Simulated assay, not measured.
Amino acid sequence: MLRRLVLTLSVSAAALAGAVPVAAASPFPFPLPLPLLSSPDTQDRLTVTVAETGNARTEGRFELECGPSGGTHPSADAACARLDELAQEGRDPFAPVPEGQMCTQQMGGSETAHITGTWRGRQVDATFSRTNGCEISRWQTIEPVLPNTRS
């Protein structure tokens, strides 16, 4: 079974590599969305609004700028570094929980967040909460863009 999987993956990768025109050849074995390939020199600007944390230090509206990092976000350097790390992994930190995803029914808190702006050349309009296991995980994945509310 493992041999079949390895063979299938090898043949698929070879077919994909052969389908890419030489002039547009990429160092990646598969096509990546253009926002993930955008230059790190482009300045990303996000507005992060956090509510219902029960802590005045972590609630409010913050501006986050990356490339270089700045704005009013209390952890701008760390937040930009986390967004860069997720982009390097090919992950979209603002993607919603997939439709039909099974999630544990646990309440992580009443915290909510809304992030708008531009990241990697695309518009962002994402809402976060801690209402079930999937949403809690999604929130924690993007920390410190969103505050750690567990402490």
Rank of each mutant, 00 (worst) to 15 (best):
E135A: 00
S38H: 14
T42M: 12
A126E: 01
L86N: 04
G100W: 02
S137K: 05
L37C: 03
S10N: 10
P27T: 15
P68D: 11
A78L: 08
L146C: 00
P40L: 04
A78S: 10
L146F: 06
R122P: 02
S129I: 02
V22E: 15
G108T: 12
I136K: 01
E65G: 10
E65T: 12
A25W: 11
N132Y: 06
P98F: 01
L9N: 08
M1W: 13
A113C: 07
I136N: 02
G133D: 00
S10K: 10
I115Y: 01
D92Q: 04
A14N: 10
F94N: 00
Q123H: 10
P74H: 10
P40K: 08
F30T: 06
A56P: 05
I115R: 00
F94I: 03
R3Y: 10
P98D: 05
T53K: 00
S38W: 14
R91F: 14
A126F: 01
E143P: 00
L7W: 04
T8W: 12
S75R: 15
E65F: 11
E52K: 12
D125A: 08
D84K: 13
P21L: 06
L34P: 14
C66I: 08
P93V: 06
P35C: 08
A13H: 06
A78W: 02
A17P: 05
L83E: 02
E59V: 03
L46D: 00
T47Q: 05
T42R: 14
M102Y: 12
R3L: 06
D92G: 04
A23H: 12
L2M: 08
L34I: 13
N148Q: 00
F62N: 01
S26E: 08
D77G: 10
R138K: 11
I142Q: 00
Q43R: 13
G108H: 10
L16V: 08
F28D: 14
L86T: 11
R138N: 00
T118M: 08
E111N: 11
A51W: 11
R138L: 02
V48C: 05
G71P: 03
G54I: 11
M1R: 11
E143Q: 06
G133P: 01
P93R: 07
N55F: 12
T118H: 06
S151D: 13
A113H: 00
R122G: 05
M107A: 13
T8A: 13
A79I: 04
A15K: 14
C103W: 01
P31Q: 08
V50L: 03
S110N: 15
L64M: 07
G54P: 01
A51Y: 13
G133T: 03
R82Y: 03
G71N: 03
P29T: 06
E143V: 05
